[in-house]
Design a protein around this nucleic acid. Structure first.
Lengths: 281, 281
DNA sequence: TATGGATTGGAATTATTATTTCATATTGCC
DNA sequence: GGCAATATGAAATAATAATTCCAATCCATA
């Protein structure tokens, strides 16, 4: 027997799809039903499932045996496992996390709180992000000679990640950081042929705002990621994104901002590659 | 009969919580088990569940009857229904995102991909994080005079965030960065009374590994965040976390690492505050 | 501490459900 | 078209699981 019994749903699914052609009519019927209504298989009885699928219970068992199981029951296990593993619904999970984080003692509660905050933020941004803005921002950045990245304090990690990613994609970029106090000079090098990604959240770091103002006065287009339309960054920006990050224990999540930052970065990379290809052709 | 049979899980849950006080001992035992292990109720048999909960099957049935069901089977229906429903939202959403990200054109697809990767990572870490490791790491870091933070390249954003958060919490820390090429000196200042948070993922930055080695040879305890037990960081570390980040378009998410990093940071903050309070009292 | 009612444990009973079996039908092949 | 192999249907059977019942125990109260 080289019969390998599929232990998890994905393998099982693949096996079924693989053999689909060679299965007898009624067995194929059950196979299709199983893949279309996995929940019914998980919960139903052999008789009820067979009835829904329009076959005899014995056929159902034969189907299971063909797949290498020793009966319907062990086939059903796989379908049940699948439901088990898919963790609770998003909201339930989040609620549970929040409950643990709020009520709970210990450090696990803190961790859960941050995970919940991050999940919520991702959820929100996925709902609210404006596709048109994204396109616009990417076009703008793709045309830039050098992309300047401007962020302090809480937003700084995002800036360093953007810089890292742009670097890996071989896109010229300059992180505006203050180690040597030469920010003003760095900023002054930017021209309208360049572009800026500026990130700042309330309370806005004064230095970020100042530098954004200066650089926008030089005619350099700015893509801003910030948290409200009242943000001082918004007024200097050519395109701006409103990202609402949930917070926990006084620290805001960064995951939504990170996801957006990565999308911008990789988006620019793709756009440039496409443009390059077109130019050559 | 004013007995209202709870038809959905939430109502059932509320009912149970409501009556908790007035339930007899064994029934209460089953009630607690049911709320803690709803999946087991959904899939198990009366006998298996009763055994897990440490009661007799008959008690399980009495529990169901007290709630107005006519037997275990109808109680179980509610738990199954819950699984069916919950299963749809979260996973479907993620799958939809992935599908869009994979199949889809345009830049929205890229964004969706990063959101999906981040969600998956958060999901995973929330399932796999070991509470004991977390406690251990926090105790270790809370005792440190100075917390050194060590990470390069892709992990660097996490390090900067940790440094920012530690700073805000007024916890002495030192980010080991190479601007002036003085890393070796910085590292040499660390003593066994300090501690290190080191973060590195495959392909491990050689500098991170080297510095981690040196610093651990000086007897400084290391808390590592890395991606597998084969990681060179793991061998130097007193405590280490395995974090599996999903990736998209060649860039790994950072959200799980970030959540863990924040939990460590804030955890240390809390632990110190508690210790301080105790000392005064 | 004695007594009644409520609760529990455990085995007996009943029901439900999976599986097997066998007769019948269908299909592919010579 | 006939034969064998395969597939299918339907009912009988075996297994498993839910439920019931009754004796034992616990608990509150007088």
């Amino acid at each position: 027997m080289d019969e390998q019994v599929p232990r998890d749903f994905e393998t099982l699914r693949a096996t079924i799809l693989d053999r689909r052609e060679s299965l007898p009519k009624r067995i194929a019927q059950i196979a299709a039903y199983a893949l279309d209504n996995p929940d019914d298989i998980a919960f139903g009885t052999a008789a009820s499932i067979a009835a829904s699928a329009g076959v005899q219970p014995s056929t159902l068992i034969r189907f299971a045996q063909q797949l290498g199981f020793d009966g319907f029951t062990s086939l059903q296990q796989v379908f049940r496992e699948r439901l088990r593993e898919r963790n609770s619904s998003y909201d339930e999970r989040l609620q549970a996390l929040r409950a643990k984080a709020e009520g709970g003692a210990g450090h696990r509660a803190i961790f859960d709180g941050f995970v919940a905050a991050a999940s919520t933020s991702l959820n929100d941004i996925s709902r609210t992000l404006d596709d048109a803005h994204l396109e616009e921002a990417i076009s703008l950045l793709a045309k830039a000679q050098t992309i300047y990245v401007l962020a302090k304090r809480r937003s700084y990690p995002v800036a360093t990640y953007i810089a890292y990613a742009l670097g890996k994609l071989k896109i010229r970029n300059q992180l505006i950081e203050s180690a040597a106090g030469l920010n003003a000079e760095m900023v002054s090098f930017a021209t309208p042929a360049d572009a800026v990604i500026a990130i700042s959240f309330s309370p806005y770091a004064p230095a970020t705002i100042e530098e954004a103002r200066t650089i926008s006065e030089q005619g350099v287009p700015i893509v801003a990621i910030t948290d409200s339309s009242f943000s001082p960054l918004a007024q200097f920006a050519r395109v701006w994104f409103e990202v609402a990050e949930a917070d926990f224990a006084g620290f805001r999540s960064l995951s939504a901002t990170m996801a957006l930052a990565m999308a911008l970065t990789v988006g620019v990379g793709e756009k440039r590659r496409d443009a390059g290809r077109k130019r050559k052709a």
